[in-house]
Simulated scan of single mutants.
Amino acid sequence: MELNVANVFSEDLLQKGCKLYYGSTETLKKLGDFENYIYEVKVEGESRILRFVHSSHRSHELIEAEVEWVEYLYKNGASVYRHFVSANGCLIEPLEAADGTVFYVSSFEKLPGRQIAWKEVEKNLKIAYSWGKSLGLLNRLSKTYNNVKCFRPQWDEEELFDIEQYKPDITKHILNYRDEILLQISTLPKNSDTYGLIHSDLHHGNFLYDQGRIHIFDFDDSAYHWFASDIAMPLYYIVMQRDFTTKETRQEFIHAFITSFLEGYSTENILPEKLAESIPLFLKLRDVVLLSVLYKKFDFEKLDDHDRLFFNTVKDRVDRKETIVTFDKEVIKNIR
């Protein structure tokens, strides 16, 4: 969490937010603080999630649009969470911090299951199939979603594209590379079968696996984007996680994962047009965006060995204009 946000997130705010959603304050358990403050809390013995989003990260309107989107998915059969109303009957509660900024508080269901790692996916490709199937359902439901009250951002409104604001002396080479990628993406077909409201970050850390089912959370990055981008993200992060442990039989794993994932996806939604050509573009874009995130979040004077390796791996790939994954495009054609 950025220092300016951490400095104004107080125990008093935490307690107030907890009580607004009927939580038992002594049961609060911190789960995360990378982009937002996430807590688990008990309400009459039931575990729920409590989230605090700072106004510098998301506006009330963007959070409202996220809540509406997730509620739509929940009501239409997707394995996502339902939201709870506060003591004031609200889905989102604003709490003012000492400096006049605001934390927006919401509460939602704690989903069943556990997080998985690449080794489990490699041993059990049914997980990749279910993962793809769940994403396919989200993308299909996006085609019939039409909320005229509030909107999530369009793909090109992503502030992390402006890497210069986090690294003012970033090289011209990287800026040109970013611009090349954005230009190529802007020419992709944009219609109801290729483009819509997507999750944007469905890596293996943003779902729980339970009895063969994928339960999805963290819609904080949801935006209007190409469905191919949603498909690229799981591939990007599962391969990255595996690479930190081993690169043996790497291509075999990539082939098996893509095949199973897309087979599952295609049971719920048609594969987007020009998918084989667009996945590499979105993998490259994720590298640029992730590099921007790391410049924004990391204190480079205090990096441990893992974080330094993480940063150097992403930075080197961007410098070389390489893609994290290469794959046989015939895999996609065969699934079609």
Rank of each mutant, 00 (worst) to 15 (best):
Tyr177His: 12
Leu208His: 09
Glu164Thr: 03
Asn88Leu: 10
Leu275Ala: 07
Ile92Asp: 06
Gly45Phe: 12
Phe261Val: 05
Val289Cys: 08
Thr326Pro: 05
Asn146Gln: 06
Arg152Gly: 01
Asn124Met: 10
Phe108Trp: 06
Arg58Met: 03
Ser278Phe: 04
Lys149Met: 07
Asp299His: 13
Thr313Asp: 10
Cys18Glu: 03
Gly113Ile: 01
Met240Cys: 08
Arg308Ser: 14
Ile332Tyr: 06
Arg242Lys: 15
His306Lys: 10
Asn124Gln: 11
Ser55Ala: 11
Gly17His: 00
Phe311Lys: 10
Asp299Arg: 13
Asp12Lys: 14
Ile181Thr: 07
Lys321Pro: 06
Arg213Ala: 03
Ser86Glu: 02
Asn334Leu: 07
Tyr39His: 06
Phe253Cys: 07
His60Glu: 08
Asn4His: 12
Gly23Thr: 01
Leu291Tyr: 13
Ile174Trp: 02
Asp201His: 12
His204Gly: 04
Ile38Lys: 03
Ser292Lys: 02
Ser24Gly: 09
Leu13Asp: 00
Asp99Val: 03
Trp118Tyr: 15
Tyr81Ala: 15
Ile38Pro: 00
Gly196Lys: 11
Glu158Thr: 07
Lys297Arg: 14
Ala78Ser: 12
Trp118Gln: 05
Ile254His: 12
Ile214Pro: 03
Val331Ala: 04
His173Cys: 10
Met1Trp: 09
Thr267Leu: 03
His173Thr: 07
Phe300Asp: 10
Glu164Asn: 05
Phe217Cys: 00
Glu180Arg: 05
Gln154Ser: 08
Phe207Val: 01
Glu64Phe: 12
Phe207Ala: 02
Ile170Gln: 04
Trp69Gly: 06
Leu262Ser: 07
Phe9Ala: 01
Asp305Ser: 15
Phe300Ile: 11
Ile254Glu: 12
Asp299Lys: 14
Asn36Ser: 11
Thr259Gln: 14
Gly212Ser: 04
Lys123Tyr: 00
Asp316Leu: 15
Leu20Pro: 02
Ala223Tyr: 09
Asp221Met: 09
Glu263Thr: 13
Tyr74Asn: 10
Met233Asn: 15
Asn36Tyr: 09
Lys133Asp: 00
Ser222Ala: 15
Leu271Ala: 07
Tyr209Asn: 05
Gly212Ile: 11
Pro189Glu: 13
